[in-house]
Amino acid sequence: MNDLLTMAVVVSALHLAVPLIYPALGGLISERSGVMNIGLEGMMLVGAFTGTAFAYATGSPWLGLLAALAGGLLAGALLAVLCVTLRADQVVAATAINLLGAGLTAAFVPIVWNVDGTSPPVHKLTAWTVPLLADLPGIGVIFSSLTALDYGAFLAALAVWWVLFRTDAGLRLRACGESPEAADSAGVPVLRTRFLAVTMSGAFAAAGGVYLSLVSIGLFQASMTQGRGYLALAAMIFGKWRVWPALLACLLFGLADAVQLRLQIASTLFPSELLLALPYLLALLALATFVGRASAPAAVGRPFART
């Protein structure tokens, strides 16, 4: 019984980590190309909403997922137009995306469903029981409670790592984030590369958002991301803009969240408000203590234009 309890915490930690992993990867792609992306929160909301709306309309959470990714690409492209093409201030532009994401999705809830704040429930993506692995003693329960989107997060991390650090495309993308002038002189199309990277980061953020609505709770709620976009950004920074450390940071934050939930149920010793703040406190502590300024891509936040 005791054993099952800890496994439950592990499963819960994974469920709480995955919606951080996707946006963290998105932020990583964008920032490695030289564009700061604090708009992940807004893009997550766009994904969560679009996914729910299309799942509601079509009855298929899979179509909802696809729509969410498309919505994320659009949100990412909007940020790219602002930051890359028009060279707007990246903090201001991303803040606009956050406000727009929160505002528009909340406004559309009554338009689409005729209710305020919360959509009716929709079909969720169902967990997939992995043959054989699910029969393992102890850890088997993990392999019967995860969805394709959970496994996808780890595959996505692998793919992002491979492309960024093992291929020519990655070398080019990172050069745009380190020294766009040098990249430009080597014939790399800096603006196009950054545009694509920021657009892609939108899709990743949306995947994290749609996980919340179509896997975690099965409906859309205004502002349901509750700062997870920022938490994912913190995880990425904590991971020093590297894939595996960022993934670990997400898992750590997820675990902190899961433990916090567990403690809320198990004990009345701690005030629940304090427990709720646990992952965020952890993020704050991590950022304040472990990350030096030097680990950020050298040109992040700096718009590029040929002189």
Partner: peptide
């Protein structure tokens, strides 16, 4: 005179 190299590479 002004180099165009990616310093972290």
């Amino acid at each position: 005179q002004h180099f165009s190299l990616v310093e972290s590479y």
